[in-house]
């Protein structure tokens, strides 16, 4: 039995420690906001926060995050998260939207560590999140917008 703290709630799960967090979230807990895109930590669609930092859940064994605080898109809270989601909505960033949970999680992690990211910070910090629809221009603008609203 493995206990995971997800979005402030403990879940007792009968899973193997090697099971990827992504599939525990999606298939065991039916928390489908976290997406499967590549399965090999290339695209960032599965990004969650583990103790406040971004983590690709497809490449995270649940055994590794026992005792950690896991946050998914469904459990977002706090002013940075709110600012990011508001900016995303204001600028209508999304197209297909499939990558956007991960984009938002990465943007929050970035803004939590750098208050006013430059374009170069955004290039480097968002490098791991692929958007096949090509919404990058708006993602960049929304991160700047969120930073401005938090200042």
């Amino acid at each position: 039995m493995i206990t995971l703290n997800i979005n402030g709630q403990n879940h007792d799960l009968d899973v193997e420690p090697e099971m990827p967090l992504l599939w525990v979230l999606r298939d065991r807990l039916n928390m489908t906001g976290t997406k499967f895109g590549c399965g090999v930590a290339q695209c960032g669609a599965c990004t969650v926060h583990v103790d406040g930092e971004s983590r690709r859940s497809c490449s995270t064994m649940v055994g590794d995050v026992v005792g950690s605080e896991i946050t998914t898109i469904e459990g977002l809270d706090g002013k940075v998260a709110k600012a990011v989601q508001t900016a995303w909505q204001k600028l209508d960033v999304v197209q297909c939207g499939y990558c956007q949970s991960g984009q938002i999680m990465s943007a929050i992690a970035l803004l939590s560590m750098i208050e006013k990211p430059t374009d170069a910070d955004i290039d480097a910090g968002m490098e791991g999140n692929i958007c096949r629809c090509g919404t990058y221009q708006r993602i960049r603008a929304a991160i700047h917008e969120a930073a401005k609203s938090l200042a």
């Binding site: 930590a41 690709r56 995270t60 064994m61 970035l110 968002m126």
Partner: peptide, 22 residues
């Protein structure tokens, strides 16, 4: 790494990932 893209964003501190091969 840098904010948003840390080593630990993808790499586990305990070992290779058998599913993703990371």
């Amino acid at each position: 790494g840098v904010p948003g893209m840390r080593c630990t964003t993808c790499h586990s501190q305990t070992g290779n990932n058998p599913t993703s091969s990371v």
